[in-house]
Design a protein around this nucleic acid. Sequence first.
DNA 1: GATGATGATTCGCG
DNA 2: CGCGAATCATCATC
Length: 433
Amino acid sequence: MDEQSRMLQTLAGVNLAGHSVQGGMALPPPHGHEGADGDGRKQDIGDILHQIMTITDQSLDEAQAKKHALNCHRMKPALFSVLCEIKEKTGLSIRGAQEEDPPDPQLMRLDNMLLAEGVSGPEKGGGSAAAAAAAAASGGSSDNSIEHSDYRAKLTQIRQIYHTELEKYEQACNEFTTHVMNLLREQSRTRPISPKEIERMVGIIHRKFSSIQMQLKQSTCEAVMILRSRFLDAMRKRRNFSKQATEILNEYFYSHLSNPYPSEEAKEELAKKCSITVSQVSNWFGNKRIRYKKNIGKFQEEANLYAAKTAVTAAHAVAAAVQNNQTNSPTTPNSGSSGSFNLPNSGDMFMNMQSLNGDSYQGSQVGANVQSQVDSLRHVINQTGGYSDGLGGNSLYSPHNLNANGGWQDATTPSSVTSPTEGPGSVHSDTSN
DNA sequence: GATGATGATTCGCG
DNA sequence: CGCGAATCATCATC
């Protein structure tokens, strides 16, 4: 017992020495008169100063020697474990309760967002979500791709910065953790520091660093959001369709003037051809119909232009079809009295014309549509012979496609000249079957 | 900057 | 829900 009490005294002294070495500052020895008057405090400070002043190499050596002696003492391990236990049961047990915290929901949200935006996670294809969405909304024409690449470049930049910073933080965290662990291990020889405590300390460090990481993730998210909103704003701006797209839409419109209501399938086909969305096709046709109806005279020229175009393609088609028929079949398919019934796979005239462009037609389709194309050609030829500019004249694409109340002619009243593919009873079933 | 063209949006109707 | 009609917002041209 006597030996033990002596040892505790020594231990306290060595501990003090240890602190003074590491901290560079000696702690005052515990005095009993804390709440005393100023004289007592002055006395304390005087003692400390005296201690500091009297630290010599010799006293340090003495302390080291004491430390060594203590470390080698046979009772040291037992006492050390007792101290550890006491320490464990007091202060640290309070903190222990907060240790196994669940994953932070905010951090999870940030992680998910970064993953969705393609900042974290796999490199390829990431971050194009907004670009793709905007592309779908705005048609994804060629000029958009410039902005897409710009968006992607900026996103890549953010991604790079994020990863660099993250790496830096991780490195710093590891370095600091290693440093602290080494320090604690070193101190554990003189202080009651259990491995569990070191583990806790590491946990605390990691939490600190993860909060820094969260800030990084937060600002990265913000940057991505800003970039994205700017990109979407730029995309939202109205821009005219490409010339080619307008051409395609106009050709369809004027070749179906008697019933310019493309079916869902036709809309999809047109959307694909024009690199725009189906709703844009719908918008275009809606606008076109209303504007055409409002001012037919203005659109006459345009109508004739496309009629001529159709004529040329129809001529090619008919020539090919006739040739095809001569070689394949003595009878003309679809040579019914009206010549305008929709065929199951006829699609619409325009679509077939498109496929015929460049002399790459499909014989069977041409054969099926030959009658309509012949009709179309005949009308166009008649038209080009003598077109009068007058409103309501005898022109090919004259207002008589419209009925009395301003709407497009009823499906039950067949068109006199236009769109031979449309037959009686056909309700804008261009490609429907 | 004025003006017309054009794509998109909104609202009411059937 | 698709359409017509009115309207808005932006583009393109002069």
